[in-house]
């Protein structure tokens, strides 16, 4: 970032025309630095992948190898023998999917109420909602556990799903989202004499979808990887989610094999990776939207 008069541009930028004449040192330096960062970010993942594809006795190969030239799948077979990966994925998908849908719907409704509807105590209520974000889950887990027991839901997936649906962060995001929509829309509707419900349904609800998508993706990402609540709330391995199953691959007293553990890690990445490929665009667009399209 030394010599430039370039603007910060967010449009898809053209390759700088000047670069034909003399090298753009700013660009070169930036790309080198970013490449280093990218290698540090992706390197450990590559190492994990390539190690999972080596036999246990090769797992600590040094110098490290980052590409699986001669893949050996025995560790993967071992994972499937030790864990019911399909069930783990199904559980994780059910839990995260229902939490995401639940959060999208409830957050959109609550966010809309906080943004666009007038009622007494709105500010105070919103502050309370925000404040709950600050309470660590570890603080409330014991009473929640007893509550779940009282509801007869101990050691079920519902015990993971239900408490996660009310979302302060999602409500906050949706409120900001609705506030960001142009107000003349609603004015037009209200001139037509539409009721608040009609205004919501025909004007705002359709526009809310991109915002809900962000809430959904963030919820999915967070709960797919959640470790602490499943650690406490589920006991039967039939109710385990992926992260829990993986940790138990490490084995007691060092009897586990690193290649097997890493094979499990790689397998658990696959569903998230698929989600990443599809969700990434939506999320990035959501978070960076409005950049001049």
């Amino acid at each position: 970032m030394t010599t430039t008069t370039e603007r910060v541009s967010t449009r898809t930028p053209a390759v700088p025309a000047r670069s034909r004449r003399r090298p753009n040192w700013n660009l070169v330096l930036r790309i080198v630095l970013l490449m280093i960062a990218a290698v540090l970010t992706l390197g450990p993942v590559m190492w994990t992948l390539s190690t999972s594809l080596r036999s246990p006795s090769e797992s600590f190969k040094l110098p490290p190898s980052f590409f699986p030239w001669n893949p050996d799948f025995t560790s993967y077979a071992q994972v499937f023998r030790q864990l019911d990966i399909v069930l783990l994925v199904l559980n994780s998908a059910l839990v995260t999917g229902l939490i995401a849908v639940g959060q999208m719907v409830t957050a959109a409704m609550a966010g809309y109420a906080f943004a666009n509807l007038k009622f007494r105590g709105r500010g105070a209520l919103f502050s309370i909602v925000l404040a709950t974000m600050m309470v660590p889950v570890q603080v409330t887990i014991v009473p929640v556990f007893m509550l779940i027991r009282g509801m007869g839901l101990s050691d079920t997936l519902l015990a993971l799903i239900l408490p996660a649906i009310p979302t302060a962060f999602g409500t906050f995001l949706m409120r900001q989202y609705f506030l960001g929509l142009p107000t003349d829309l609603a004015e037009a509707a209200s001139i037509d004499g539409a009721s608040p419900w009609r205004t919501f349904r025909s004007v705002y609800a359709p526009l809310a979808v991109p915002g809900m998508a962000i809430v959904g993706i963030l919820a999915f990402n967070f709960h797919w990887n959640e470790f602490f609540r499943p650690l406490i709330m589920t006991i039967s391995e039939q109710n385990f989610t992926l992260p829990l199953g993986l940790v138990s691959l490490q084995g007691n007293l060092g009897t586990g094999s690193i290649s097997v553990v890493l094979a499990g890690v790689v397998l658990s990445m696959i569903p998230a990776l698929v989600g990443f490929i599809f969700g990434q665009r939506a999320l990035q667009d959501g978070l960076t939207a409005g950049s001049g399209k």
Binding site: A38, N221, E226, F227, P243, L246, G264, M269, A272, G275
Partner: peptide
């Protein structure tokens, strides 16, 4: 995408 990638992994793994 590269910088975003670690976010999709679980902290445990």
């Amino acid at each position: 995408s590269a910088f975003f990638f670690p976010l999709i992994l679980s902290a445990a793994s």
